[in-house]
Amino acid sequence: MKHKYYLLVISLAFSMQSYFLIHNFNERNSNYLHPFFLFVLGVEPITQYTNFLIWFFVFISISFYFSGIISENINGYGKYMLVRNTQKLKWIMGLYYLTTIRLFGLVVLQFTFFILSSFIFTQNLETFPSIIMLVKVVFIYFLTLLFLIFLQMYLELYTSPQVSLLSVNFYVVLSILLAGVIFLHNQGELLLYGLIPNFAMGLRLDVISDENFIISYPIALLILGLVVLLILYFSIRKIEAKDIY
């Protein structure tokens, strides 16, 4: 029941985001992407707070949807089912796999909202950019969200779902706003690679933007791959050592 409620909230967030971005398509970044894919643009290098709030509303809706996945299974009745029926390694990897599939489904749903809104609110559908560019920005958008949700799940091995959710969302907000300051002053480029939520912002990557002071896509992809693998590794170590009996 909880997931159905959050899915409704996510759908509302997707609809608001698609309406706002496509309604302002001609004024904002129409030369970058086909309107179907505007959701991967994110926030401009110098933060525009309206776009930031809309993007964050979408993310926090997704974050709530995945909150408690691990905690619910290692506390209360869930831990007895785990002890009796499942190996810890198989269980933890199964949860991460299921999360990946669900998140992919949500990104497809988000894409669907933008397709529908594009046909309703704009007639400028004839321009279609490079397929390679689209694949790159959609892939890193998905992978960045995956890292943030995995991080939230990993923290639940140590603390409550509420603290995990607040911690990740605080990191997201701080990263986006701090990156905006870095881009404004054109100083501290290396710090950007520790502010991983910005990797989901197409306008802050060199795949779309031609600015000199920008996040490098290959480096961002390498960092994402590394941190996702580290989360999986440390999750396995933690769950194997954790006493859930």
Results as ranks from 00 to 15, higher is better:
F114Y: 09
E72M: 01
P218A: 11
L116F: 15
S15F: 12
H23C: 04
T100N: 07
L221V: 13
Y193K: 04
Q87M: 04
G78M: 07
Y65N: 11
L177K: 08
V173H: 00
H3A: 13
F150V: 05
L157Q: 02
L38C: 13
F104N: 09
K2T: 08
S63V: 12
L103S: 01
F14T: 04
E44P: 00
I149R: 00
F234R: 00
Y19F: 14
G180V: 00
F59C: 13
I115K: 10
P197N: 01
S235I: 09
N24A: 10
F64V: 14
I60H: 02
F113T: 05
Y49Q: 04
I60R: 01
I115H: 10
V137E: 08
K88P: 06
N26A: 09
L125Q: 06
H34G: 11
I92F: 02
G202R: 00
N85S: 13
E156Q: 13
Q152Y: 03
S30R: 06
I69A: 14
K79R: 15
T144P: 06
Y49S: 06
F114C: 02
V135A: 15
L151Q: 06
L125G: 08
Q110H: 12
V137W: 02
L184A: 13
S117A: 15
L38S: 14
Y193N: 05
V107H: 07
L205W: 03
M16I: 14
F64H: 14
G194R: 04
P45K: 00
N169S: 12
A220F: 09
S11H: 06
S216V: 03
H3Y: 12
L224S: 05
F139E: 00
E211H: 11
G68F: 01
T159K: 07
S117I: 07
K238V: 04
I60S: 05
L232S: 09
G194K: 05
L106G: 02
R237H: 07
V40I: 04
F199S: 08
L41E: 11
K2V: 08
N169P: 06
L184F: 13
P35H: 01
A200P: 02
I215P: 02
S209K: 08
E211Y: 09
I132K: 07
G78D: 09
